[in-house]
Nucleic acid binder design. Structure first.
Length: 221
DNA sequence: AAGCTAAGCAACCGCCGCTAT
DNA sequence: GATAGCGGCGGTTGCTTAGCT
């Protein structure tokens, strides 16, 4: 069997538009199906990731606010590297974003600590690796990074949090910018719309029903 | 202006758990 | 009950951008 070529690497605007369209059409669940039906040469996983981390209109973009930073610190001390869990508590932020933030944040922190430590005493360093002079810089950062908050996780608390999570699940805060502008442009310009629909996917070939003619793009948000 | 380094971010990989068959 | 397929998660990598020399 000839394996269909799978695209990797950065997503193009065209791919984004395609994905957004199909997610709105079929929902953000069956990613393998979406990947196939959309005609995107991407894996379901890749589609999901792109949606979750970038295209989802509920995402908040830009720098973390001090409140969010505090929340991340607090929750990480509680749960450790449970990024998706932490992300659920911070509307508009993804696990990937928080993870990246944490890494950067901790690297900075580790460097500051190291500076402090070396300025006070050459032998004093991180509390968890003070005796090992052979430990590398990277290892130091890693030790600092992995605070192991998981041990603090308690079953009772987890239950409680799960309940809270369920209750607050529908929190939706911010909308996304550029992709949606593109969608709006499409909405305004039906000729472009049609040409894209014609070229994007083999699915259109199967759709005898002209449902797309009256498709309301404004419901995309 | 050019080169270098660090920071930030997007995307991939591998593993695990859930679910349908 | 076994297993295959899929989605989700955490860890990691690599590219781009910003800042510094």
């Amino acid at each position: 069997m000839v394996q269909e070529e799978i695209r990797r690497g950065p997503w193009t605007e065209q791919e984004d538009l395609q994905l957004v369209f199909y997610v709105k059409l079929f929902g953000d669940r069956r990613w393998d199906f979406l990947a196939k039906v959309s005609g995107l040469k991407r894996t379901g996983k890749s589609c999901r990731l792109r949606w979750v981390n970038y295209l989802n209109p509920d995402l908040k973009r830009g720098k973390m606010t001090p409140q969010e930073e505090r929340l991340v610190l607090e929750l990480h001390s509680k749960w450790g590297n449970r990024w998706s869990r932490i992300a659920r508590k911070i509307p508009g932020r993804t696990d990937n974003e928080i993870k990246n933030y944490w890494r950067t944040h901790m690297r900075k922190k580790a460097q500051e600590q190291r500076k402090k430590a070396t300025s006070i005493s050459p032998s004093s360093s991180f509390s968890n690796c003070s005796s090992s002079s052979s430990i590398t810089r990277e290892e130091n950062e890693r030790n600092f990074y992995d605070t192991g908050g998981i041990e603090q996780l308690q079953v009772e608390e987890q239950k409680k949090d799960n309940d809270q999570e369920q209750a607050g699940e529908s929190m939706k805060v911010y909308s996304m910018d550029e992709i949606w502008k593109d969608i709006e442009l499409l909405e305004e310009n039906e000729t472009i719309n049609k040409s894209i629909m014609g070229s994007i996917s083999p699915l259109w070939d199967y759709c005898a029903d002209p449902m797309w003619k009256d498709f309301d793009w404004s419901t995309f948000r």
